[in-house]
Write a protein that binds this DNA or RNA. Structure first.
Length: 420
DNA sequence: TCTGGGGTCCTAGGACCC
DNA sequence: TCTGGGGTCCTAGGACCC
């Protein structure tokens, strides 16, 4: 019999901030998306004030001021590092851990030598809290979907743990668990099911698998099995090779001039190269897109994209910049206020450079050494210490806003927290 | 003034082939 | 006027996730 635990950090980004600034304790705190656009993490105190997930910040600015909500820009360097620490702790509790997202991990608990999984989970929670400062919740069930469901319910329990291994308890909980909160049911499927009078997880569980498939494709059929305790989604301890890679950003201010667009996209190409090299992958085509904002509805709209094929798979930043610049050249048209642009790639492959170098001389080798030096310098002294001139030097006009970012406490020597 | 970014999986339908 | 039957591959778009 399979058994999974799902552990996640409560209001994860906010909790990370609280670890390093105890003044945030008990206060409503939200963390904002890129560009300080909308709320992507809220403490319970902030939720109680009616701040929704994805709530645009400009709409709640007044509320925040009035109610003393602390709004922070996102600090991904900090959250990523805290996430790594949490997983190191999980590893001590089980050899089988799947990192599912920055704040969630699945743990195989079917073969743990414990008689009571609830006690085990409570021990995990308190260890994590003590060692990292992050509060967590744990849900346990015979399938991943049920572990997720248990976790959601555990959020409202005093001890933050719920084990749904037993079928009686499971049925009781599923009877009034809203379908919209079930993992895998989004707004579209929720509406479809609601139209059939289905509102609770227990009703989805009792659908015929064939009917669920008709309604929600094979995903829905799997869901029914999972809710019945028949595991369809195995633990994936080794992350699969990634299929695509993208760097896209909204601009801090609308872009109306071509040189700015060129610099912005050159910056994305640079970042793309870094990501590809970090994963040991390469690409043989890049798609560049740019568009205006749908919220500027009294202005002319434009949304275009173009794919450029590369002669061979590469992760060389300068090659990526050249290719994306060609695309910008083709796509650019003045008279619009562009809000966002990006580079997207698919069909990632291992770099072909090492073989090619044998045939067409030293260029590949040289380029690879330049990239290696670039990556090492930026790793040691911080991102964009060394960067291609095409990115431009005065980037303030369009670069992403982080006006309320806290220090990168754990990953930068010059931003270490100090005791006074 | 101000509305995120980056992934995955699935299906339908067209192009193409024999 | 008649105008098959099946495959495969690729892509766009939808849905979902955090």
């Amino acid at each position: 019999m399979t058994a999974f635990a799902l552990v996640d950090g409560n209001s994860f980004y906010c909790s990370c901030e609280r670890v390093f600034d105890p003044r945030l304790e008990k206060r409503p705190v939200i963390v904002l998306s890129n560009n300080d656009g909308c709320a992507v993490a809220r403490t319970n105190e902030a939720k109680a004030l009616g701040i929704r997930m994805g709530h645009p910040y400009f709409q709640i600015k007044d509320l925040c001021r009035r109610e003393g909500v602390v709004a922070l820009s996102s600090n991904y360097a900090l959250y990523g590092d805290m996430s790594r620490r949490l997983n190191q702790i999980y590893d001590r509790f089980s050899p089988d851990v799947e990192i599912y997202s920055i704040d969630e991990s699945f743990i195989d608990v079917s073969r743990l030598p414990v008689k009571d999984r609830t006690t085990w989970a409570k021990d995990l929670r308190s260890t994590v809290k003590q060692w990292s400062g992050i509060p967590t919740c744990v849900g346990i069930g015979p399938t991943k979907t049920l572990a997720k469901l248990a976790n959601k319910v555990a959020k409202k329990l005093a001890d933050g743990v719920l084990d749904l291994s037993g079928s009686t308890e499971r049925e009781r909980v599923m009877a009034d668990f809203p379908i919209g909160d079930v993992w895998g049911i989004g707004p579209a499927n929720q509406a479809k099911l609601a139209a059939m009078g289905i509102q609770f997880a227990g009703q989805v569980r009792d659908l015929e698998p064939r009917q669920a498939r008709q309604l929600m494709t094979v995903v829905g059929e799997r869901l029914v099995h999972e809710l019945n305790g028949r595991s369809c989604l195995p633990l994936e301890t080794v992350p699969p090779v990634r299929q695509g890679c993208a760097v896209t950003r909204s601009f801090g201010q609308r872009v109306t001039r071509k040189p700015e667009m060129e610099q912005a996209v050159a910056g994305y190409a640079t970042r793309l190269g870094e990501k590809l090299r970090r994963h040991g992958l390469a690409t043989d085509q890049v798609t560049v897109f740019m568009h205006t904002s749908r919220f500027d509805d009294d202005e002319p709209q434009r949304s275009v994209s173009m794919t450029v094929d590369l002669p061979e798979a590469t992760n060389d930043t300068l090659t990526l910049i050249k290719a994306s610049r060609r695309a910008v050249d083709q796509l650019w048209k003045s008279g619009y206020r562009y809000a966002k642009a990006g580079i997207v790639t698919q069909d990632l492959v291992p770099p072909s450079g090492s073989q090619q170098a044998l045939f067409d001389g030293l260029d590949h080798e040289r380029a690879a050494r330049v990239m290696q030096a670039l990556d090492e310098a930026n790793k040691r002294w911080g991102r964009a210490t060394v960067f291609p001139a095409a990115m431009g030097i005065k980037r303030e006009a369009f670069s992403t806003k982080f006006e309320m970012r806290t220090p990168r406490y754990t990953t930068r020597w010059d931003e270490l927290p100090e005791c006074r």
